[in-house]
Every structure is written in structure tokens, then in C-alpha cells.
Design a binder for these strands. Structure first.
Length: 564
RNA sequence: UGGGAGGUCGUCUAACGGUAAGACUGCAGCCUCUGGAGCUGCGUAUCGGGGUUCGAAUCCCUGCCUCCCAGCCA
């Protein structure tokens, strides 16, 4: 029912599951979960985790829960919950159960009381600052809280009063009694509960104390009988704490396995920083097509299949690597090459007058919709005396290896005729504003009966039939491979790419593109893949360039200019 | 300076004591009604130093480097 993620190479997590299946460690069960905090939108890094968790369960006939780790009401909102649900579905996955850590608040509270009763937790009156001081440093052990040895009764009473709202935010905490001298900070009497008089998006005002993530996460996995709790590397240090809680409470023990988080060049994958971009208006919103969010790349036109294939091609390891953005883009091209219908659109129009073409005549030419997919069929595109071609497809003085149109040279117009340039018309500033050509009627359809060849084929649009459209061209949001690389005192916003968005308001598109369905993806021949933006209005489509086609000429030209 | 986790082509991943392999990128070429797609070929790597072994990316010792941890965030 849910699609198969692209099969990638095996990895140590998959190997572990196979091993556990062979030894019967979980009676043949595989149950994973994807546990986001609803404090922001999902991004491409989450897609890796989604594909891993859902993909592994699918492969071994297991289940996956979608669970919201919503233990901090001050940062979480239903808007985020809704977007995450939508994004996971869009990725093509369905969950066994939709869960919330907040569903377990009562259970967690009861367990906290058990820990107090067994002398393993205490109410601490230290302020946040004092707790930090008492915690010690990497080289020095911490100091035990003076409140550490309160009686069980006193702790029980105080904790009940915390729950009843008798104290202000931050006045007291419930802490585990572990080891202030542990080299692992997570075990230096960590906080279980803090007082937060905040309304929760699901439990409303039922609680004014909330469990810390660390006190909720492992037990949530336990409650859901998760077998393999996959998480990223930074939680490796927390595993001993989760184990301590689960052992102290005496409940089912899932196995946590940590893997490397996705890092992409020219991309920021930090919810905090993405939130800043949105809040400071540096992008249009969470779904700005330059954002690495799933909603952003969806709007940009990335198909979920391409993201799945990208995720599947990624290795799962424990090394902190940096994946080249080009790999993601290549997955998008591969997918769209097979699926996207071809159309013609001219981004920067140059008027071409065909001197020997009859004044009011129109040729209806047949064009292939997708050379990679015969079933996509053909369509008719109109041709007339005045057409537009791309400005960059004409050079009055062509450089070496430039095959396109120039005075005296003949090229082919895609699916139409051979076209020969006679002369260019310039304005006062010396800019070419119009090109006069002749065409060869015998080459209708694109081939010459006499067998002569041309070195180049150009896309074009008939001027009188053209639809005006807006096209948004995107470059990377940041100029540096690592956007976090900044000088002292600067932040990542200095690396924002001023050219990340270029809006072309008067592109000329073939007539079939007047009212395309929102989200539809096309290949504009020779240019790239483009997706219909929701900003489109009837008769005035707006396209986002999803990704450009590989451009061999751009590469040659760039190399040439570098030599100089 | 404490703890945890890592270090294999430019990038990512494999090789689990027995010929260092694949993908992406790059380069060269073929093909082409998209300078797209496709096809062919080429190139570059085991962090350093010691050991064990017939044989080490793999095991041992040692040094170096990178990432994470001192939120009442997750």
C-alpha cells in the first residue's frame, strides 16, 4: 500500500535488525517510530529518518508509529503537528499508530511518584543558575543539591504541590538521584519535571508540570513496545540515562541505535535557524521553495519519489559527513526525466522575425510529450512568422564551440523548421532587440530532405500564441557550502545568497500552459524542470524552477572565462 | 585537561585477517531533433608511527584530527 523506498545498500542498523530477527530477540517483531517534536516544519534531514524508520519496518513486515514528542508546550503548536502529519503522508508513508508523548503524561507522572517512593528522585529548590553551578564541569565533578536528602514524604508532598500549581515557573524541579560525579552530564541528577504554567496544544491546562524529553522519550518507546529506537548521534550520551529510567521503573526495554544526521552542502538543517529565517522574513515562509523543508521542496517541485530515492541512496553510518547537494538534485532529475512532460518556454525572449514566412499563416506542429515515455503521446504546438527564442541562444559574434544561432548560421527549431539567421537589429545602446531569419519550408518537422545537418536545436514559442508567465529561478539559499562558517561575531545570515531568487515576470510559454494544474511538473526543454506554484492565477501561471538540466555549454563557457 | 562517538578516492558508502569495490562528481570520447537523456573509457583513497601475522583498512599499542555533551530545549 505504501510505496517501497528505493533499495539502498545495507547498513549496520539493518544488519542489527536482521540479527535480532535471527535470534528472536523481539519474537520476530520490528516496530520503529518517527518521533518529531512539533516545534517546526520537517526538513530533508527528517526525510532521511522517516525513510529509515518506515522503510525498515516495511522491509521486515513491521510497524512504525508516528509519535509527537510534545513535552514542551512553550515551543509547540498544532500548526506544526498538522504540517508534520501532512508531510509524512506526502512522503508516501502511513503509520501504525499516531501517538503523542502527551498521551503518557499521567503514566509518566505515576512513574515519577514511584521513583520518589523508591528514593530515586527528589524535589529540588535550586534555581536554574544554581543547578548549573552545582553541575560541575567536564573535569570537575558536580556538587550534590542540599535538597537531595529530603524524606520521601516531603518529596511526595512537594511534588504534589508542584502539580497543583502552588509554585511559580522554575521555583522547583523534580530530579533523579543518580551521580553528581558521573563523567556523563546526563547522569548528574537530571531533571525529570519542571514547572511550566503553559497551555499545551493537546492537554490544555490539565498540567502545569511537564516531563523533560529525557524522562519521556525512552518510556514512550517502551510504552509503544518499540523494538528499535533509531535516533541521531547526539543522543548517544543520553542512552545511559534512558536505560537508567527504564531499569529503575522496571519496564520493557527497547534498543536505541544512533545514526548520523544528514548534512547537505549549501543547506541549513536546524529547526532553530530555519525558524529564524521565517520569523525574520528572510524567506517567504516555511514553504519558501528555497527552504530545505519538505513543504518548501514540495512547492519547489521535488517529487516524494525522488526524495525517497535520495534517502535510500544515503549510507547509514556514524560518521559526520557532508552530502553534496548535487546528489539530491541528481535524484530529482533522474525522477523527473522519466515522468515530466516536455514543454517549451522562453525565459528571456528575443524576437525573431522569419522574413520568408507567410504573414498570417500558422503551422501546427506535432511535438513529443516525453521521449522517455512513449505513452505520454504528442501534442500540437503552433508556429508563425514571429517567434521568441532565448536571448542566450543568439550571439552576434559567437565564441568558439558556440553552436547556436548567429548571423549566417543555420539551426533547428525543435519540432519545427531549420532557421537561418540573416541579420540582427540593435537599439541605440547596441543591444540586439530583434533577429531576422529565413526558414526552410522543406524542413517541416525538423529534418532536411537533403540530409544536411545542423549543430544545434533551439526551443521557441510563437509570439502571437504565447502565454505570459512568471518564472522563479532559485539558487542555493547560502553562498557557502557550510552556511555556519562565519567570522567571529557574525551569524549564518551573512552567508545568505543575495541571488537565491530571481523572478522573471515575462516569460513566453507555449499556449498549452495557460492554466496548468497547481503542483504540475514539466520539463521546459533545454532549461530544466519547473513546477506550477500556487500563486498562479487563471491565464497567468507561475512556475518554480525545480532544478536546471545539466548544462554542458555553461560548463564549457565557464571554463573558457576562467582561462582568461 | 572529563565523557561519548568517529577518521577509506573530491564527496558518500563497501570490503568484517586474503586482489581496496560501488555511487556521485570530475575528465575524455560515442550517440542524439533537448549541448538533456543514454553509452564507453580514465582518474584519485585506507589519518601518522610502531607492532602481531605468510598476509592488516580490518587485530594490538601509540600519537594526531573531527564531531557531540556543562538547557528547567528536543
Amino acid at each position: 500500500m505504501t510505496p517501497e523506498p528505493a533499495a539502498g545498500p545495507s547498513n549496520f542498523i539493518r544488519d542489527t535488525i536482521i540479527e535480532d530477527l535471527n535470534t528472536g530477540k523481539y519474537q520476530g517483531r520490528v516496530h520503529t517510530r518517527f518521533p518529531p517534536e512539533p516545534n517546526g516544519y520537517l526538513h530533508i534531514g527528517h526525510a532521511k529518518s522517516i525513510c529509515l524508520n518506515f522503510g525498515l519496518a516495511q522491509e521486515f513486515g513491521g510497524k512504525t508509529n508516528l509519535r509527537f514528542d510534545d513535552t514542551n508546550p512553550s515551543k509547540e503548536e498544532v500548526e506544526y503537528v498538522d504540517s508534520i502529519i501532512n508531510d509524512v503522508r506526502w512522503m508516501g508513508f502511513d503509520w501504525d499508530r499516531l501517538c503523542y508523548a502527551s498521551d503518557y503524561f499521567q503514566q509518566l507522572y505515576d512513574w515519577a511518584i514511584e521513583l520518589i517512593q523508591s528514593g530515586k528522585a527528589f524535589v529540588c529548590d535550586l534555581t536554574a543558575e544554581q543547578i548549573r553551578e552545582y553541575r560541575g564541569t567536564p573535569s570537575e565533578p558536580g556538587t550534590e543539591s542540599p535538597y537531595r536528602n529530603r524524606s520521601v514524604e516531603e518529596n511526595l508532598g512537594l511534588f504534589a504541590r508542584m502539580k497543583n500549581g502552588e509554585f511559580a515557573d522554575g521555583a522547583r524541579t523534580l530530579r533523579a538521584k543518580i551521580d553528581m560525579a558521573s563523567p556523563n552530564f546526563n547522569l548528574r541528577d537530571p531533571i525529570l519535571y519542571r514547572i511550566l504554567h503553559a497551555s499545551h496544544h493537546r492537554t490544555r491546562d490539565a498540567w502545569c508540570i511537564y516531563p523533560m524529553y529525557d524522562f519521556a522519550h525512552g518510556q514512550s518507546d517502551s510504552i509503544e513496545h518499540i523494538t528499535h529506537s533509531l535516533c541521531t548521534l547526539e543522543f548517544e550520551d543520553h542512552r545511559p540515562l534512558y536505560d537508567w529510567y527504564i531499569e529503575a521503573i522496571g519496564i520493557y526495554h527497547p534498543q536505541q541505535i544512533e545514526f548520523d544526521r544528514l548534512n547537505l552542502t549549501y543547506t541549513l538543517l536546524s529547526k532553530r535557524k530555519l525558524l529564524k529565517l521565517v520569523q525574520d522574513g528572510l524567506v517567504r515562509g516555511w514553504d519558501d521553495p528555497r527552504m530545505p523543508t519538505l513543504s518548501g521542496i514540495r512547492r519547489r517541485g521535488y517529487p516524494p519519489e525522488a526524495i525517497r530515492s535520495f534517502a535510500g541512496s544515503l549510507g547509514i553510518s556514524k560518521t559526520n559527513g557532508m552530502i553534496e547537494l548535487g546528489r539530491l538534485e541528481q535524484c530529482v532529475r533522474e525522477n523527473l526525466n522519466k515522468s515530466a512532460p516536455r514543454v517549451m518556454g522562453v525565459l528571456r525572449p528575443l524576437k525573431v522575425v522569419i522574413d520568408n514566412y507567410p504573414e498570417d499563416h500558422v503551422d501546427e506542429l506535432e511535438a513529443t510529450n516525453n521521449p522517455e515515455d512513449a505513452a505520454a503521446g504528442t501534442r500540437i504546438v503552433p508556429f508563425s512568422k514571429v517567434i521568441y527564442i532565448e536571448q542566450e541562444d543568439f550571439r552576434e559574434n559567437p565564441p568558439k564551440d558556440y553552436f547556436r544561432l548567429s548571423p549566417g548560421r543555420e539551426v533547428r527549431l525543435r519540432y519545427a523548421f531549420f532557421l537561418k539567421c540573416i541579420h540582427a537589429v540593435k537599439d541605440e545602446a547596441g543591444q540586439v532587440v530583434e533577429v531576422h531569419c529565413t526558414y526552410d519550408p522543406l524542413t517541416r518537422g525538423g529534418n532536411a530532405p537533403d540530409g544536411r545537418k545542423v549543430k544545434s536545436t533551439l526551443h521557441w514559442v510563437s509570439a502571437s500564441h504565447a502565454v505570459d508567465g512568471e518564472v522563479r529561478i532559485y539558487e542555493t539559499l547560502f553562498t557557502k557550502e557550510d552556511p555556519n562558517q562565519v567570522e567571529e561575531g557574525e551569524d549564518f545570515t551573512v552567508n545568505l545568497n543575495p541571488k537565491s531568487l530571481e523572478v522573471i515576470t515575462a516569460a513566453k510559454l507555449e499556449p498549452g500552459l495557460a492554466n496548468p494544474p497547481e503542483g504540475a511538473r514539466y520539463q521546459f526543454e533545454r532549461l530544466g524542470y519547473f513546477a506550477v506554484d500556487p500563486d498562479s492565477t487563471p491565464g497567468k501561471p507561475v512556475f518554480n524552477r525545480t532544478v536546471a538540466l545539466k548544462d554542458a555549454w555553461a560548463k564549457i563557457e565557464k571554463r573558457g572565462s576562467q582561462k582568461k
